[in-house]
Design a protein around this nucleic acid. Structure first.
Length: 639
RNA sequence: GCCACCCUAGCUCAGAUGGUAGAGCAACGCAUUCGUAAUGCGUGGGUCGAGGGUUCGAGUCCCUUGGGUGGCUCCA
């Protein structure tokens, strides 16, 4: 007999060799039906694998991430089985589960798999799933494994096996399909009820751009058809909210072939929105003793040689601008910090001056790879809500707290309530790739951890993700559809003060190196607004929206009254426009609804004679008639 | 940058196998002065992303190039 310990601490005894599935059955049939795999002593196992020692056991179902991973991993195998039947010449790379679904990288030789082929593969998968084939695990020797895949002429699997240790190699088989795999897998294929292959794309073998480009097929599966339907609806909703689509429809920004890829052009409405965001932050920063500065868009190449950016990125970014003067070269600025370091360095500083907070909405240019460009999220010219705080090592934590507070305010103000902070620290194993003393690093890392703890921020710590010049914190923000985005960032930097020889005179009358903090609560205006568009589906908060109201006269007889209404609203500080087209009221309402203007004020004979407006709220309909002033005041108190 | 796919009127999209382009919406004109998501009728609009090639003939086939989409790699 063996002792099995459950997550709630209870212990039950079973025969040695019992499987998780059998244990689940001993608890309830319903549970057994839902079990996908099991965590045995922290390791994820097949539910059908015998347990022969005392163990801790957690049964995994669809509700756990590990359960989903098992489900999707098995789905990848199912797809591979279908592919092998349909395209016998296929060679297989890797086929893991991902955040939402799975993929398999395959090499189909001369035959190309197109999007149009996916339904056929999908159908074959459904057919195979219904066979209720079990996933059978077996341990094979390295030589047997090699022989098997030599036979199949699958050089990818052979390469994978090379890196594996003899004795730890397992095969899984369902139906006639055998795959090299660590597992675990589902008990059988019949659990996979709903199948959708979503995409086909290229992917380098082992992520190495020098190696062969394979075909990657993405898919997602669910235990219930309904869950697939819901998932597809979410994808549809995400498409509707796509900031590239809404940005064009709402006339916020555009791109032009002639201006160049990745260079967003802000249209009047987008500019109105962006300026309001900027003004909001500028005001907050003034309250917090930031000093706004303005620096040029270019700087001599030497500036970036000093900062180190030229060496690291010079070849892969915009190349220097030549001038009529021999040997003179300027760079489009890829970062604002070198300029700000020059500002700090232009006069001596006492420790009494610190911290110094230099802020600039600085536009920077980086030559992102053409394949990387994407709407406003990845561009070649963008504006950071940048600031650099120069402080003493002692002030680090206090300054961090201040920045955290400001960033939280920004996110709250824009309706992002769901976020975590990712703290990126040094790689503990290899400290050689970082610059700055151990003591300083320890101090900075501790300051970040302490500060986030003090403000009660939910954090994830990632070792080895720090920049070479210092640890950092990134805000990971979840939008209305539950998707995560990296927005604001705070980074500690020991490198630039060193390179620019920045100093302050301490109370000991000696020169010391200040610490620098880079921080940007929005991150970049472009990226932030892109995320904001998708988060709000284009229905921006009232204080931000380019147009707060539209006055819709029933006919042009009421234009004069409409003008009066608008004059009143302007005086009260609200912005909007009159739709003076000779169109039906139905038409005007429809167009205004589609433009997502939050309020419509309809004026006709009734309203004019009563001195009121008929208020209609976007997406909600008629709100009844009221005095303009009353409406405006109520609205403003809500903003 | 790499792989695949795409680019036809302002927008969304039709245009088997090569025979010099079409719809809806928008725009413009006229009529309509209208009560909570599209008033009616009419008109104009395209060097088919650009350049080159094959062909008697190219939106359609080939090459180069710009831009986009989905991935991969990258991201100060």
């Amino acid at each position: 007999m063996i002792k099995i310990t459950f997550p709630d601490g209870t212990v039950r005894e079973y025969e040695s060799g019992i499987t998780s599935m059998e244990i689940a059955k001993s608890i309830s049939e319903g549970l057994a039906r839902n079990v996908l795999s099991a965590k045995v002593n922290g390791e994820i196992w097949d539910a059908t694998r015998p347990i022969s020692n005392d163990s801790k056991l957690q049964l995994l179902t669809w509700d756990s991430p590990e359960g989903k991973a098992t489900f999707w991993h098995s789905s990848a195998h199912l797809m591979a089985e279908a592919l092998e039947i349909l395209y016998p010449e296929t060679k297989f790379g890797i086929g893991p589960p991902i955040e939402a679904g799975f993929y398999y990288d395959i090499d189909t030789g001369d035959h190309q798999i197109l999007l149009a082929d996916l339904p056929k593969i999908e159908a074959k998968m459904k057919e195979l799933a219904a066979n209720k084939s079990t996933y059978n695990r077996r341990v094979v020797s390295k030589s047997d494994a090699i022989e098997f895949f030599k036979e199949k002429e699958d050089e990818y699997k052979l390469e994978l096996i090379e890196d594996l240790e003899d004795g730890s190699i397992t095969f899984y088989q369902q139906g006639n399909f055998v795959d090299l795999c660590r597992g675990p897998h589902l008990p059988d294929t019949s659990k996979i009820k709903a199948i959708k292959l979503t995409n086909v794309a290229g992917a380098y073998w082992r992520g190495d751009e020098k190696r062969k480009m394979m075909t990657r097929i993405y898919g997602i599966t669910f235990p219930k058809q309904k869950e697939l339907t819901e998932y597809l609806e979410l994808v549809e909703e995400a498409k509707k909210r796509d900031h590239r689509k809404l940005g064009a429809e709402l006339e916020l920004f555009m791109f032009s072939d002639k201006v160049g890829a990745g260079l967003p052009i802000w249209l009047p409405k987008g500019t109105a929105l962006r300026s309001r965001l900027e003004d909001f932050l500028k005001e907050e920063q003034l309250k917090r003793n930031y000093q706004p500065v303005i620096t040029p868009h270019i700087g001599k190449k030497d500036l970036y040689v000093i900062s180190g950016h030229y060496e690291k990125y010079g070849q892969d970014s915009f190349h220097p601008i030549q001038t009529p003067r021999e040997g003179e070269e300027f760079l489009l600025k890829p970062m604002n910090c070198p300029h700000h370091c020059e500002i700090y360095g232009h006069k001596p500083h006492s420790y009494r001056d610190l911290p110094i907070r230099i802020a600039e909405f600085g536009t920077v240019y980086r030559y992102e790879q053409s394949g990387e460009l994407h709407g406003l999220s990845r561009v070649r010219g963008f504006t950071q809500d940048d600031a650099h705080i120069f402080c003493t090592p002692d002030q680090l934590k206090e300054e961090f707290l201040g920045v955290l507070d400001l960033t939280k305010l920004v996110l709250r103000k824009l309706g992002f309530d769901n976020y975590t902070a990712q703290i990126s620290l040094r790689d503990q194993e290899d400290k050689s790739k970082y610059i700055g003393s151990d003591e300083n690093w320890d101090r900075a890392e501790k300051a970040i951890i302490d500060a986030t703890g003090e403000v009660g921020l939910e954090t994830v710590i990632v070792h080895g993700e720090a920049a070479f010049y210092g640890p950092k914190l990134d805000f990971m923000v979840k939008d209305a559809l539950g998707r995560s985005w990296q927005l604001g960032t705070i980074q500690v930097d020991y490198n630039l003060p060193e390179r620019f020889q920045l100093e302050y005179i301490g109370s000991d009358n000696e020169a010391h190196r200040p610490v620098m903090i880079h921080r940007a609560p929005f991150g970049s205006m472009e990226r932030f607004i892109g995320v904001l568009i998708e988060h709000t589906a284009g229905k921006f908060p009232l204080w931000l929206t380019p147009e707060q109201y539209a006055i819709l006269p029933i006919s042009d007889q009421y234009l004069e009254y409409a003008n009066k209404v608008q004059a009143t609203l302007s005086t009260l500080g609200l912005r909007g426009y009159i739709d003076s087209r000779t169109e039906s009221i139905g038409r005007k309402i429809r167009d205004t609804e589609l433009n997502k203007v939050p309020y419509m004020l309809i004026v006709g004979e009734k309203e004019e004679s009563a001195g009121v407006v008929a208020v209609r709220k976007q997406g909600e309909g008629d709100q009844g008639a009221m005095k303009v002033e009353d409406w405006a005041i109520a609205l403003k108190s809500n903003m």
